[in-house]
């Protein structure tokens, strides 16, 4: 699981070379990494470490600062919840130097609190609230200028929901799941079917197939002695 996060199978070789070598510090490579970010956005790929490398370059070279790229990285990392990716990105954003000159007004200061709120809602599994905030008028700017470019943004959020639901439920009410996924009617039916989940006869409850996290069992863990633990004792006895 973690290894796909460290090095996603979709990562091209030249990016891998950049991310794992000293060349990641070279400011002239920032465009390569930024292009790769937009590729991730178009193709529903995700590469956290490569995006962190962009933020690292921004951290060392304030003149590279590009708020659009930062917003896109943050939106990308939103949908990695419950992994800490979003905070890891924020951690690299230092107070922006005041003298930074931009052609247009900087969108980041106004967008950052909004994205942070979305992140908090996802992290705390407040899915219905997330959707209502996301669809609210205040977020028009974010939707029209950023998430619209992000291929499958809403589905990526739904994937976060599915991860949480799958681990917690064996059966869940259709209405409840619909609120979590922001889907209803035939759309919801199709989505659930696509996941391989089944709806019961009444149509009000959805069965979630067993997985490692929604199987519970009361166990007693017994200790297990391995030979190496006894080496000192036995060898001492042999010597004596």
């Amino acid at each position: 699981m973690a290894s796909a996060w460290i090095s996603p199978p979709t990562r091209p070789e030249n990016i891998d070379y950049l991310v794992s070598g000293v060349d990641r510090y070279n400011p002239s490579n920032v465009t390569i990494l930024e292009d790769y970010l937009y590729q991730q956005i178009r193709n529903q790929e995700y590469d956290c470490l490569a995006n962190l490398a962009i933020l690292k370059l921004y951290q060392f070279n304030p003149d590279l600062y590009n708020p659009d790229v930062i917003v896109n990285i943050l939106i990308k990392s939103l949908t990695a919840s419950p992994l800490p990716d979003f905070n890891l990105c924020i951690s690299l954003l230092e107070d922006k130097p005041i003298s930074a000159t931009l052609d247009e007004p900087d969108p980041l200061p106004s967008l950052l609190p909004i994205i942070q709120e979305l992140h908090e809602l996802l992290d705390r599994c407040r899915f219905p609230k997330f959707w209502s905030v996301y669809h609210s008028n205040e977020l028009e700017n974010l939707r029209d200028n950023y998430t619209v470019e992000y291929a499958g943004f809403e589905d990526a959020v739904r994937a976060v929901v599915v991860r949480a639901v799958k681990a917690t439920f064996t059966r869940i009410g259709t209405e409840r799941l619909g609120q979590y996924l922001d889907l209803e009617g035939p759309e919801l039916q199709a989505y659930v079917k696509n996941l391989g989940w089944s709806v019961d006869q009444s149509g009000t409850v959805i069965n979630i197939p067993p997985n490692p996290d929604n199987q519970i069992e009361a166990t007693v863990v017994q200790e297990n002695i391995k030979l190496p633990q006894l080496i000192k004792v036995i060898s001492h006895a042999a010597k004596a």
Binding site: F169, I172, A218, V220, L230, V233, H236
Partner: peptide, 28 residues
Amino acid sequence: FVIDENMVHIAESTVGRRFAGWFIKNTE
């Protein structure tokens, strides 16, 4: 725990007392 529609089922795993480590340490 797991939620079955509106019913929460809970299971607790308990760790049996660990004697062996204690005995090995003290024997040594």
